[in-house]
């Protein structure tokens, strides 16, 4: 039986002032390999300053429709010690290349409990979808300037991947307004 390795969701942060956003997934064998792979796949172009990966199987994903239909969020039946969960949320149907955005972390005894808490706590915008990710399952790129320089900065110099590099043919630039260097939206 073939293996394509497990799937890991990738969260990319474009600039220090923006949240980590779900950009897609990679297939990789182990946590560090997944992080290297995320960088290789999702930092081929700017922008990025940080990346997180988490096994897709560790993520609790619930949509607004599921909640409206009364999808039951079972509270933990055991007396579990609370642990940390990262909460991500999608709030708009606008054209976008990213899914949920990081909104914050909280302590809860289970993912379901974490989601219930999140719904009470993060009320500044209506949620269309939620992801709850155990912090213990997340592997993060280092924040050191050296790592940021080495992992993410060089993509800025690869201008041949940008349409503006091919100056002489401009007829269609207007039809595809986004350029390679754009932030993910």
């Amino acid at each position: 039986m073939d293996t394509q390795w497990p799937r890991w969701e990738v969260f990319k942060q474009d600039t220090p002032s923006k949240p980590h956003q779900a950009v897609g997934s990679v297939h990789a064998a182990d946590p560090f390999h997944a992080l290297l792979t995320a960088r290789n796949v999702f930092a081929r172009r700017p922008q990025a300053v940080s990346m997180w990966v988490a096994p897709a199987s560790a993520i609790l994903s619930v949509t607004k429709e599921e909640l409206a239909e009364g999808r039951e969020l079972k509270p933990s039946t055991f007396d579990l010690k609370p642990s940390t969960y990262y909460v991500f949320r999608k709030t708009s149907h606008k054209r976008s290349m990213t899914f949920v955005d990081y909104v914050g972390e909280l302590e809860a005894p289970s993912p379901e409990d974490a989601l219930k808490l999140a719904i009470e706590r993060f009320t500044d915008a209506p949620a269309l979808a939620w992801w709850v990710v155990p912090a213990s399952s997340v592997t993060k790129s280092e924040d050191s300037p050296e790592t940021v320089e080495s992992w993410f900065a060089p993509a800025k110099d690869k201008t041949y991947k940008q349409q503006s590099y091919y100056g002489l043919v401009g007829a269609h630039a207007g039809k595809h307004k986004r350029t390679q260097g754009d932030d993910d939206e």
Binding site: W5, V26, H27, L36, T37, N40, V41, R44, P154
Partner: peptide, 18 residues
């Protein structure tokens, strides 16, 4: 051997060519 590694090695090739 897998899509992700195809991409990874192509990064290295571009870097070295650069």
């Amino acid at each position: 051997p897998i899509l992700e590694e195809d991409i990874a090695l192509a990064n290295i090739a571009q870097d070295e060519l650069g």
